[in-house]
């Protein structure tokens, strides 16, 4: 049985970047990896493919070509890249798209056929509806990871994801493998995320510092692992990969009520504000999704 994980997080928080670097690092470690982008934007795997996009599962179905041979495309170091795809912004139902794509892959034995060691679902946003919860249901992923920065809205999204995990945990759904702290610039940000995990019965698996190397590689259409393999940042991703592959933790998180979360966060944000004015700029910058 392959290890199957799903990675969630607020939009723009660096989820696909982290996922693709994780895939690339795992692949370098010798594992056969499949990355499945579950986002109608269809851009999860582009940095594994030199910046080029691939035809999506749903487009293939839509054309009714009956051609199930061309859903999986090889990327960096032989990583199997899949994009679920979905509707244009403002129309249709992206959630149903995720369901349809995953069912198609699963029921037709397409994933089994490639028999990867690890399958990573890169899922848009927090668990907004039944469709986006599909990857954490019983029988799909067995561990969920979430990417967050110290931005309040990103943590808010993590808290929502925890609610989703809790909901499906009664029915054999996936449990939490850990929180990945991303875009970290100060130890206070680490402390805030750590505190959140301690209060919600979860844990941080890795902090990933903010790094211009990542941005530069992305602009070149590659992962940091591929574009700057000797960088310190690449080593961080490799460390994350080693942790993920060995991680057997399965947390049943205890999310905050929304009001409590706001109370908790305001304390931390005040501290961050007091700590250094420049920190405020970072919060805003991160909130804008860069």
């Amino acid at each position: 049985m392959p290890k199957q994980i799903a990675i969630y997080g607020k939009g723009g928080i660096g989820k696909s970047t982290t996922t693709s670097n994780l895939s690339a690092a795992l692949s370098d470690l010798g594992y056969s990896v499949m990355q499945i982008g579950c986002d109608p934007k269809n851009d999860s795997t582009t940095t594994l493919r030199k910046g080029k996009s691939i035809p999506t599962v749903l487009d293939t179905v839509r054309q009714r070509s009956g051609d199930l041979d061309n859903l999986v495309h090889e990327g960096y170091n032989g990583i199997y890249c899949v994009e679920a795809g979905g509707p244009e912004p403002g129309v249709g139902c992206a959630g149903r798209g995720i369901i349809a794509a995953i069912e198609l892959l699963d029921n037709n034995g397409i994933i089994d056929e490639y028999s990867p060691d690890i399958i990573i679902y890169d899922v848009l946003g927090d668990v907004v509806c039944g469709g986006f919860a599909m990857p954490i249901r019983k029988g799909i992923a067995d561990q969920v990871y979430t990417v967050t920065s110290s931005d309040y809205m990103a943590i808010y999204a993590v808290n929502n994801l925890f609610k989703g995990i809790l909901k499906y945990s009664n029915n054999g759904g996936a449990l939490l493998g850990g929180v990945i702290g991303n875009s970290i610039k100060s130890s206070l940000q680490e402390d805030m995320i750590k505190d959140f995990t301690e209060r919600t019965n979860s844990d941080v698996i890795q902090f990933v510092p903010r790094s211009p190397t990542v941005t530069r590689c992305e602009l070149d259409g590659v992962t940091t692992i591929e574009g700057a393999p000797d960088s310190r940042q690449a080593e961080v991703y490799r460390e994350l990969a080693r942790k993920v592959i060995n991680n057997k933790d399965k947390y049943l998180p205890t999310p905050f009520d929304n009001d409590d979360l706001a109370d908790w966060a305001s304390g931390w944000i005040n501290q961050l504000l007091l700590n250094r004015k420049v920190e405020i700029d970072n919060i805003q910058e991160e909130a804008s999704g860069i």
């Binding site: 959630g95 149903r96 369901i99 039944g130 919860a133 599909m134 249901r137 019983k138 009664n170």
Partner: peptide, 14 residues
């Protein structure tokens, strides 16, 4: 139920 992604098996198991 298909569109809203009801977890039928989850309910059944429970």
């Amino acid at each position: 139920t298909g569109i809203i992604g009801e977890d039928i098996e989850g309910t059944v198991d429970e």
